[in-house]
Computed example of a mutant assay.
Amino acid sequence: MSTATYIFGIIAAVAALTVVVELLRRNRLRERHAVWWITGGILGLIIAIFPSIVDWAAGIAGVEVPTNLVFFVSIALLVLICVQHSSELTTLEDKTRRLNEESALLTMRVRALEDQLNAPLTDTSDKE
């Protein structure tokens, strides 16, 4: 690997970590979402600083081409992020449905009460 490749890898990893930290700081990203991105950024930074780690890990995992291991780990990280988001989306859909149902019931109760108030008053006393 050339020196430019090392520098590019380090700059890319630091840029990714900087973006995640800045999003956290501005409250545009929650901590539970940032965990996987920070993990990926730190792994990218470690690999950029020590590229021989990929060769070592590929040897341990039995992967012939170290780049394939990098792709596999990257895809696995993205799948974990997708699963986390899907889980949270399902929870939010359930909460939204429940809130809509409660709102509809409350609207029905308010309309019924308004109808009772607006109904013509009938005199129930005996007129003889």
Rank of each mutant, 00 (worst) to 15 (best):
N118D: 15
L106N: 07
T124L: 07
I38L: 13
F71G: 15
E128D: 04
I46F: 13
N68M: 07
E88G: 07
L23W: 02
L105F: 02
S52E: 10
N68W: 13
A58F: 02
T39M: 13
T90Y: 09
L121N: 09
L117R: 08
V35G: 14
I46E: 05
N68L: 11
I7V: 13
Y6C: 00
F71E: 15
D55A: 07
I53A: 12
E93V: 11
F71H: 15
I10H: 10
L99I: 07
A76Y: 06
G41N: 04
V20F: 01
V65H: 11
L69T: 06
L80M: 14
H85P: 00
S125C: 07
E128Q: 07
I11W: 03
D115I: 10
D55L: 09
L113E: 07
I42V: 07
L77R: 14
S125Y: 14
I11S: 04
E31M: 11
A48W: 09
F72L: 04
L78H: 02
T5F: 03
V65R: 14
A16Q: 10
E88I: 12
W56F: 06
E102T: 11
R32C: 00
L117N: 09
D94R: 14
M108N: 04
V20W: 04
L92H: 03
E31N: 08
E22D: 09
R28Q: 10
R32G: 00
I53N: 11
V19R: 06
R98K: 09
E93H: 13
T91G: 05
G9S: 00
D94C: 11
V20M: 01
R111Y: 01
D123C: 01
T122E: 15
V70Q: 09
E31I: 10
A48Y: 05
S87T: 14
A12W: 09
W37N: 12
N118S: 15
I75P: 02
Y6N: 03
L113Y: 13
G41Y: 10
A57P: 00
T107V: 00
M1D: 00
T67K: 15
T90R: 09
E114I: 06
L121M: 12
G62A: 03
T124R: 08
T39F: 15
L99M: 03
I81L: 14
K127W: 07
V83Y: 06
G62H: 04
P51R: 02
W37Q: 13
E31G: 12
L80A: 14
